[in-house]
């Protein structure tokens, strides 16, 4: 399968990339890892006039934790985050999602920013960033806009991103003691999108849950922010009963259909179980 014809530019600075976007408007399209876009081009679901390759922008794949802020460059690859020592030791929700997305070959190319911009409701990063209450930074020539992760993803394959904007960075508050998180994903086989995924981030203070973030994968038309479940958790001491109650609050917002991955009832049962397990895992890590 050949993609349709297009022009190609490979800027080597953010400035050049923003200029190219400004010039090409809605006929220009960014290519990051290409792991969603190239399949779409081959299937002719997309036919941009010009591809703007951001793989050569310096510093776009950085990770840092400084001054109370955790920052991810938009071009961080799934595998890079899955193996990052800071993620495997502290931000488990990131490390776990990073190794469960797609397969190792796709993970070597696919990027955090690309996944968020593609906004597949079955994709994993959106839920993780909802749980971390992350901010998504969109830049265009001369202006920057910021969105909360839940707000950024509007619906199936749609986001707040404008045609002339690039997501440059994703950031969230750095964890500061008592933090625990987890990502659980049910997939039929390696490389499959989620039947269900749960991203959980908890902060414990003096034995009670001071803050909670819960994002759900494949449970609706976008990655869902389970706010009711978060409300159940905050201010309470972790317990199996509490987690069961939060799980019900998450199940209540699931809007799922029957497909080859199962019936709605089945998917909701997976969600219920994953919520309980994922919360227990995050709480254990928060206490460690």
């Amino acid at each position: 399968m050949y993609p349709p014809r297009f022009d190609y530019v490979a800027p080597t600075s953010l400035e050049e990339a923003l200029d190219a976007l400004a010039e090409h408007g809605d006929e220009g399209k960014i290519i990051a890892g290409g792991q969603s876009l190239i399949p779409m081009l081959k299937l002719r679901f997309a036919s941009p006039e010009t591809l703007i390759d951001i793989n050569r922008l310096p510093g776009m794949d950085g990770v840092s934790e400084e001054g109370g802020t955790l920052r991810f460059g938009a071009l961080c690859r799934h595998n890079q985050l899955g193996a990052h020592p800071l993620m495997t030791s502290k931000y488990h929700v990131v490390a776990e999602a990073g190794t469960l997305i797609a397969d190792p070959l796709v993970r070597n190319m696919g990027s955090l920013g690309g996944s968020l911009c593609h906004a597949d409701p079955q994709a994993d990063w959106g839920s993780v960033m909802i749980a971390l209450k992350a901010t998504i930074v969109c830049q265009k020539k001369g202006a920057t806009r910021e969105f909360g992760a839940a707000e950024f993803m509007e619906g199936i394959f749609t986001t707040k991103l404008a045609d002339d904007e690039i997501v440059t960075e994703i950031r969230c508050d750095a964890a500061n003691g008592g933090f625990g998180s987890s990502y659980l994903k049910m997939e039929r086989k390696v490389g499959d999108f989620a039947t269900c995924g749960t991203a959980i981030a908890l902060t414990l203070k003096d034995g009670t849950i001071a803050s909670a973030g819960v994002g759900l994968t494949a449970m609706g038309a976008k990655n869902l922010h389970a706010e009711d479940a978060e409300k159940v958790l905050v201010g309470q001491a972790p317990s199996a009963e509490l987690f069961a109650e939060a799980a019900e609050a998450a199940v209540a917002i699931a809007d799922v259909r029957e497909d080859s991955r199962g019936t709605p009832e089945y998917k909701k049962n997976v969600l219920r179980t994953f919520m309980k397990r994922g919360l227990a895992k995050a709480a254990l890590r928060a206490q460690a």
Binding site: Y8, A10, I31, G34, Q35, I38, P39, L51, D53, N55, P104, L105, V106, N108, M109
Partner: peptide, 15 residues
């Protein structure tokens, strides 16, 4: 040095 799927990668990206 990185393994990837050459059916999901443009030749121009390898420039």
């Amino acid at each position: 040095g990185t393994p990837l799927k050459s059916c999901t990668y443009l030749a121009v990206m390898a420039n």
